[in-house]
Design a protein around this nucleic acid. Structure first.
Length: 369
DNA sequence: TGTGAAGTCGCGAGATAAGA
DNA sequence: TCTTATCTCGCGACTTCACA
């Protein structure tokens, strides 16, 4: 993306009005836009396309570096195309579109850019540019420029922020671990929990039952089960969205739990009856979700376990074959000693927009229709 | 069944390190 | 000093789950 687009306008009043933004983007209607199937790539391509048009069609002059401050740390939540103070989104298929806004509440007055002369640009002034793409014809069929207040009035408030914690396991660390015996990095519990003989009782429990003295297995027993029954198993790379559940099923079977109903309901931890959270990972990022051992938090209905003494198994799968080649098994408190937590939580606000809304703008580029 | 919340995958881009 | 490679991490699209 052009460098000029990454700087805010020289002053707030230089921003192109949203009505004029919609007019400028009219040229994109019926323009070819091939979806790659990689969401992040498609989002970046749309941003570049919109950016290239706005950068060449009498854009605002950009502020010079000493004249403004970006307030959020690490520019978190600041719109990508700062020059026009917009974020862009691809709307493709489905019956509704899930608009996700990262690290800011679009309906708040939170300051994003502060000019030295005293004026500010805040969250509620960011404009949303949504492009409806026909996935069959591979063309842009409609553009809509929306303001946060319009979205709130028409579709309702943005939902409660969803927090997401992440952990990084570098390629180097991963390779080192896979060189260990059995490809496993294991740390025993500080104090032994449970009894190895409890495995005989597990058929009487559901994995969602609260852990008890009669159900908990020591983490060393879990290690033996992982080594013998989990490592070497295949989790199909095709099952992209439910690989965690496949791994959970493998544990369920290995522990001897009886499957009841659909069995797997997600939540934290995955296998509550063993105070065990399981993750499948073949990329560097491990998505920890709402709970992270970085922050000590008690876990409800989990026998007094907290995020630090919760047991974690992170399965390293081969990205091509899906075979579990190794992994990490330890309590939460050990994870931070060997891997890196992504600093500061990210959160997102979500707002569902029915797809019928986009059908109404077919062939048009409009502002707050 | 519809909707909001939570979870998953993994890419893009910026930062940093290594090499020429 | 410049270029290239690698690492880091922010976050977009999509899926799934929980619950009213």
């Amino acid at each position: 993306m052009e460098e000029i687009l990454k700087r805010p306008p020289a002053s707030k009043d230089q921003l192109t009005s949203p009505q004029d933004l919609a007019k400028k983007l009219q040229t994109l209607i019926n323009r070819p836009f091939k979806l790659s199937g990689k969401p992040r790539t498609d989002g970046a391509n749309l941003r570049k396309l919109i950016g290239s048009i706005l950068a060449t069609d009498s854009p605002p002059s950009a502020a010079t570096s000493g004249d403004f401050k970006i307030i959020p740390p690490r520019k978190k939540g600041v719109p990508k195309i700062l020059l026009e103070y917009i974020d862009t989104y691809v709307v493709s298929t489905g019956t509704s579109y899930n608009l996700q806004v990262w690290n800011r509440n679009p309906d708040s007055q939170s300051v994003q850019i502060e000019y030295d002369e005293g004026t500010q640009l805040n969250s509620s002034e960011i404009r949303f540019v949504l492009a409806k793409v026909d996935a069959t014809l591979n063309i842009i069929t409609g553009i809509v420029v929306l303001t946060p207040d319009y979205i709130v009035k028409k579709f309702g408030q943005f939902g409660r922020p969803t927090v997401k914690n992440q952990l990084m396991i570098s390629q180097h660390s991963r390779e080192k671990i896979l060189e260990n015996t059995g490809g496993l990095l294991f740390f025993d519990e500080a104090e032994q929990v449970g009894n190895p003989d409890n495995i005989r009782n597990l058929s009487n429990y559901s994995i969602h039952d609260e852990p008890t003295h009669e159900s908990l297995l020591p983490i060393s027993t879990i290690r033996d089960i992982v080594a013998k029954q989990i490592i070497g198993q295949t989790i199909s790379p095709g099952a992209t969205k439910n690989r965690g559940q496949v791994l959970e099923s493998l544990f369920l079977k290995s522990f001897g739990y009886k499957m009841r109903g659909s069995g797997l309901i997600g939540g934290y931890p995955d296998i509550r009856n063993q105070a065990l959270e399981v993750k499948v990972q073949d990329a560097q990022t491990v998505d920890l979700g709402l709970y992270s051992p970085e922050f000590l938090e008690s876990v409800p209905k989990c026998g007094g376990f907290n995020t630090r003494n919760m047991r974690y198994f992170i399965a390293f799968t081969n990205p091509a074959s899906g075979i579990v080649e190794g992994g990490v098994l330890c309590t939460g408190d050990k994870l931070g000693r060997y891997f890196t937590y992504v600093s500061e939580k990210s959160y997102k606000c979500q707002r569902t927009i029915p797809m019928t809304f986009f059908q109404g703008i077919n062939g048009k580029s409009v502002f707050n229709p």
